[in-house]
Design a protein around this nucleic acid. Sequence first.
DNA 1: GCCGATTCGGGTAATTCGGGTG
DNA 2: GCTGTCCGAATTACCCGAATCG
Lengths: 71, 71
Amino acid sequence: MGKRTIESVIVDGWDFGPGQLLSPGDVANIFRVDPKTVTRWANDGKLSSIRTPGGVRRFSRQQVTYLMSGR
Amino acid sequence: MGKRTIESVIVDGWDFGPGQLLSPGDVANIFRVDPKTVTRWANDGKLSSIRTPGGVRRFSRQQVTYLMSGR
DNA sequence: GCCGATTCGGGTAATTCGGGTG
DNA sequence: GCTGTCCGAATTACCCGAATCG
């Protein structure tokens, strides 16, 4: 071992590792929806998410890209 | 590189990247047509579209601009 | 600690969906 | 063939004050 960095973080099969996290605003811009709508997707289980210790959601770039290109 | 969300999303050769998406109402206003008509264009394959996780269509500004300037 | 921007929550309007019909 | 409209259901947008982010 040694440096003790994060190798991978996978939730629901999606990559939440370093450089893969999108904010609600990011996802909203990508789909052209209100950030509130992104929150609803998360609550409805349509979008996987993790939470910061403060309670703010973060999303997987990998999953968002997948959803953009047609389910 | 700046904000780094998603580089590009191309469907049927048209740009569906961030800042390039139009709602059904947007397209309807541009062509002065009922939004339902825009939906029919999409169903008939005359207009490419992607869907939000909720099932609402989004269109490519690039394609609409192309069609506006006469085929 | 301060500050601007964002994202919580909730609630309520406005759009869009799909099918059917003129 | 193409478009507008009616309907109910589902999805999304805008409003607020409080909290978090960077």
